[in-house]
């Protein structure tokens, strides 16, 4: 079980006449159960890459193999792919349309032609895991608060029981607690369902807190593909392409610059605390 990207490139038109490449020769392999973070500034090709994984965008060069099968082969079942590789777009609440929350969550599974029992069971499970209170199940999704809508929309994708979950900035626009809540839920779900998660985010702090492996995209190229620690040790490279390291890491760098010999390869508050305590005591 894996996804292999083999020399993916993707043409893109900017102003109808000029063409440029949104993605250039991307090669990577995603193993089962990984938690991958994708970073890169706006326009670096993150969204296009995510849509390629889901079969929504057909790359102009290269191939995508899901479990060893080329997803752009003629007879390949894209519906099956999309159910197994679930995609949560930015502001997913904008896709809600049904009369009740529950019916909306059932939409995906229904399209897969499951039995009624299976559909409802799966929808319940997804809503429960996203922490939606049962009194909201039969309300209109449009009456919910922003954070609730977002969670319902994510449940709508979860209900299809995806083996790979792609989330494009799931926390954008929410307040601090809402952010934490959504990301914690995703981490929980990952642990419970043992699925692969790919998280696109602009927040280095979130990437540092949640994922194991990071892809850094710049101008359509995958320039770094490594563990969190490794990626954030390339402080200068990241800054060159307009990205930053997590705040905690940059604090460690500042301490080092001031002459305090600390290990800068630290990304979370706990690690930083231990490192500073080691130094001070």
């Amino acid at each position: 079980m894996s996804i292999i990207l083999d020399k993916i490139s993707c043409k893109y038109e900017t102003d109808m006449i000029n063409e440029h490449y949104a993605l250039k020769c991307i090669t990577a392999k995603i193993e089962d159960g990984e938690f991958i973070g994708v970073i890169g500034h706006t326009g670096s090709g993150k969204s296009t890459l995510m849509q390629i994984l889901n079969g929504l965008v057909v790359p102009s060069g290269g191939s995508v193999y899901y479990n060893g099968e080329d997803i752009h082969e003629k007879n390949y079942n894209l519906y099956k792919l999309r159910s197994e590789v679930g995609m949560v777009f930015q502001y997913p609440e904008h896709q809600l349309f049904e009369t009740t929350v529950f019916r909306d969550v059932c939409f995906g599974p229904k399209n897969l032609g499951w039995s009624k029992k299976e559909i409802e069971l799966s929808a319940f499970e997804a809503l429960f895991q996203m922490g939606i209170e049962s009194e909201l199940y039969y309300q209109s999704p449009f009456d919910l608060s922003g954070g609730q809508k977002r969670r319902v929309a994510i449940a709508g994708v979860l209900a299809m029981k995806p083996k790979v979950l792609i989330l494009d900035e799931p926390a954008v626009g929410l307040d601090p607690m809402g952010k934490r809540n959504i990301l914690d839920k995703i981490a929980e779900i990952k642990a419970e369902r043992n699925c692969t998660v790919i998280l696109v985010s602009h927040s280095m702090d979130d990437i540092a807190d949640y994922v194991n492996r990071v892809w850094v995209l710049d101008d359509g190229k995958l320039i770094i593909d490594a563990s969190v620690k490794e990626v954030f040790s390339h402080k200068r490279d990241l800054e060159e392409i307009g990205l930053a390291v997590p705040q905690i890491t940059s604090i460690m760098h500042m301490l080092k610059d001031k002459g305090l010999v600390v290990n800068t390869n630290v990304t979370t508050i706990d690690e930083a605390k231990m490192e500073i305590l080691r130094k001070l005591r």
Binding site: N54, G86, Q95
Partner: peptide
């Protein structure tokens, strides 16, 4: 653009 995005979002929920 919005329509395009919504269509993609619903197709990723396996809409035919």
């Amino acid at each position: 653009e919005e329509t395009d995005k919504i269509m993609k979002a619903q197709s990723s929920r396996c809409m035919n």
